[in-house]
């Protein structure tokens, strides 16, 4: 069973934090298919967040196919995460990032500078993407879909 935690200092909305924590737990293998998520009441009392927040998070997880609500029984994990499951794509991205970090160090950036840079790029709206990046994104999307269409191995 996952223990949710809500950080009230950051700008990430509470429901998004819950979604993120389920994804993180799936990624780390703490949650597996068939596991039960805490009831809305449990999350509400333990994290002191609004029921609407929890419901919103669960609905979002349901829409992305990660959980399913069973009538009267609760919410259960029903899917796995896509993208990050492909080790080849991960390796490629990691390699490119390693090169980039090397470049940045040479240019005199410190770790915090790099983090700020990444944050600011992440904060840029998707409209700012270059044609090359968009192509890479489409490629990544195709790679994400492939394993699922191929079915469980």
């Amino acid at each position: 069973m996952i223990d949710f935690y809500v950080d009230r200092t950051g700008s990430v909305p509470a429901y998004a934090q819950l979604v993120q924590q389920v994804r993180e737990a799936l990624r780390l293998g703490l949650l597996r298919t068939g596991d039960k998520l805490p009831t809305v009441r449990e999350v509400v009392t333990s994290c002191a967040v609004n029921a609407a927040t929890v419901l919103k998070a669960y609905r979002e997880l349901e829409l992305s196919g990660l959980v399913e609500a069973r009538q009267g029984a609760g919410t259960y994990i029903s899917g796995t995460l896509g993208g990050s499951a492909d080790p080849a794509a991960m390796d490629r991205l990691r390699g490119r990032l390693r090169t980039w970090v090397g470049d940045a160090r040479q240019a005199g950036l410190e770790d915090d500078d790099m983090r700020a840079l990444v944050t600011s790029v992440l904060a840029e709206p998707p409209g700012e993407l270059s044609a090359e990046q968009r192509a890479a994104q489409a490629q990544a999307a195709r790679e994400q879909q492939n394993p699922r269409s191929a079915g469980p191995r």
């Binding site: 809500v6 009230r8 200092t9 909305p13 509470a14 429901y15 809305v40 009441r41 509400v44 009392t45 333990s46 994290c47 002191a48 967040v49 609004n50 029921a51 609407a52 927040t53």
Partner: peptide, 30 residues
């Protein structure tokens, strides 16, 4: 806060919560 929110979730109840500790309101108020 948690128990109170659970009461709201389980009953037809509207809660108006006045406070000046804004930091605690994240995730609490709709």
């Amino acid at each position: 806060t948690g128990e109170l929110l659970a009461e709201v979730a389980e009953n037809d109840m509207t809660v108006v919560l006045s406070t000046h500790v804004v930091a605690e309101l994240a995730g609490v108020g709709d």
